[in-house]
Design a protein around this nucleic acid. Structure first.
Lengths: 187, 187
DNA sequence: GGTAACATGTAAGCGGTTACATGATTAG
DNA sequence: CTAATCATGTAACCGCTTACATGTTACC
């Protein structure tokens, strides 16, 4: 019962179905598009994408068509009416569930008492730079692309990209304050 | 080569080793303690904990002792000098790696164009309430416990709990602003 | 002295990641 | 015409989660 078989969609299935709804037509296009947007909050790996596509087609939520070029396989998809209905039902369901965060930098910070003052400062600075880089990527690439998508009538990606920018601003600021505090404490 | 065998510790091994360094003595104690603190940024499941404990003991980074009560098994651990050295080396290593976030609420928001205005508002409010609840838990339980740990000389947990509080404040505020904006747009 | 809560550990299976294999297209 | 890049899909493996099995103490 691992995916879209009965009842409500599970999240990975909905993610793939939703990418098709936003205009990605093949597994490869989903991969490229989600790598530049969705992946910041919901990563999709190739085998996930391709196997979900198959299941969604079998379930009638996607309509597939063969577009092979010579010996090279290629299968494209469109969302069906049933697919749109399933996506709406999924998006409106109750209790999305908890956010999950996994951060090796915070893990190190948790055990930072094993570190020298200088080591701790370096860790905090690395964490800050990581978010500054993410912020630059978001603002130079992701947000502009999301705005184009918004121009086509899909406002979700831009909102989520905006969330990402705000999030990394918060993290960078938090690291900056902590860094300053550490500097003061050392004198 | 899956863990602490040669060279640097991997993150899950370091997490378990670090929990012992902070005073958790058995697998069960690590489970309880990490569930109230570390799990917000680095979840540990029982089989991970127990198998890492075995590997760390074999590698000489932990010293184990049998403390069975009757037919009930129990094994307790202390960190060794080699263990402390490995933990220091791990904490000071280069490039912690990227933060990973997976959030079903943001996933839904990404595809929110499938939703009615009311559905979107409900989603944003659910997201806000989720962070408000997390904030309450952090401030009522986690932060006080982390402060006690800080009193014993370990300042990492309190810093990380503080980060969590700031993070959920940011998310709740972001949702509140978005909610207000949606309300205005609907008139 | 029975029931619930605490404590300890494990088996089994899923989901997901890494890495690759292969084919077409463009550029130099 | 060769090399590099784009495009498409898959195999194999591993970490992790869920769920359980079992034992022991505390409570009523």
């Amino acid at each position: 019962m691992s995916a879209s078989e009965q009842g409500r969609l599970l999240n990975p299935a909905a993610a793939v179905l939703g990418m098709v709804a936003l205009g990605a037509r093949s597994g490869y296009e989903i991969r490229r598009a989600s790598d530049r947007s969705l992946r910041f909050f919901w990563a999709l790996s190739p085998p996930q994408i391709y196997s979900e596509l198959q299941r969604l087609e079998k379930a009638g939520l996607l309509a597939g068509a063969d577009e092979a070029r010579g010996r090279r396989p290629r299968r494209t998809f469109e969302i069906t009416e049933a697919g749109r209905a399933a996506l709406r039902e999924w998006a409106g369901g109750p209790d999305p569930g908890p956010i999950e965060i996994r951060d090796p930098a915070l893990l190190r910070l948790f055990f930072a008492d094993a570190l020298t003052d200088a080591g701790l400062a370096a860790l905090v600075e690395a964490m800050r730079l990581r978010s500054v880089a993410a912020l630059e990527l978001l603002e130079s690439d992701i947000l502009p692309a999301a705005r184009r998508t918004a121009g086509e009538g899909f406002t979700g990606p831009e909102r989520v990209a905006g969330f990402g920018a705000g999030l990394h601003e918060f993290i960078a600021g938090w690291c900056e304050r902590l860094g300053a505090e550490l500097k003061n404490a050392r004198g």
